[in-house]
Amino acid sequence: MNRGFASLHPSPCFLYYVSLVILAMIIYHPLFLSLALCAQILLNIMQDGGKKLKESIKYFIFLGLLIFLINPIISHRGQTVLFYFFDNPVTLEAVIYGFVMMMSLLTILVAFISYNLVITPDKFMFLFSSIFPKTAFMCMMAMRFVPVLRKRSQDIALVQKTRGTDTSTGSFVQRIKNGMQIIIILITWSLEEAIITSRSMRARGYGITKDRTSYFDYKMTKRDWTVLGLIILSFGNLLYCWHCGIGYFQVYPEVSALTLDIDTGLFLAASLIYLAIPIVIEGAERLIWL
């Protein structure tokens, strides 16, 4: 995918997701989290029509509900007792905390779906290689081998079936043995063949210079710098708010009321600016094609 938010340089994108996950983990304000979750869902829908989100949404909801229900059962902190569950107090605070946690968790999980759409393996490797070039290079080689090995292991399994080595029939121990037999053939064979890979690397000059470069075709344009600046500013702003206690929502020991004073209002406005960045970028792209 190379449109909208994903058409930006990987750095601002990566920073955005990292900052979002951090914010979702430290700001426990129900309104902020609800906005963040909605923004992420909207972003997902704009990016791929919510296809990937649909695949996993039921697990997410299950996890969210689980946490929502478990917290009041295991945590008995808080002062407002709602009722007793098997002689244990269930408090309003624990229920609300569970809700906040659920929102935080869902925001992070949904953000990762969008992350996986935007930060493709290639972009990830670009970011990785800008810090650890050799490690990233090794990972890319390993990624090259994965589909090869998968194909080989299927071929081996097929042929070994004709020799009675089958992982789908026989006793449990026999099946494990057979599976490992396939792995041993795979390892012996692949390591043997990989010698050719190392020869081909040498033939193209691997290791003759220490200043190996990396070919990644990403460059920061003015637009990328602008977005990067915007992300840093709005993220910094929210961090500052958090540091000063603006937008702090107290749960324990006693839940505070959800008031909409000026501080909170400003805080939510700042959040909206931050959350809107990718959505506006996606939307702007759509406008071009309207």
């Binding site: 990972c139 080689m141 792995i183 990989a194 890979t197």
Partner: peptide
């Protein structure tokens, strides 16, 4: 090159 290939291959395996 051999050592790089070896580590990458073992990881993939």
């Amino acid at each position: 090159a051999e050592e790089m290939v070896l580590i990458a291959m073992l990881s993939a395996l």
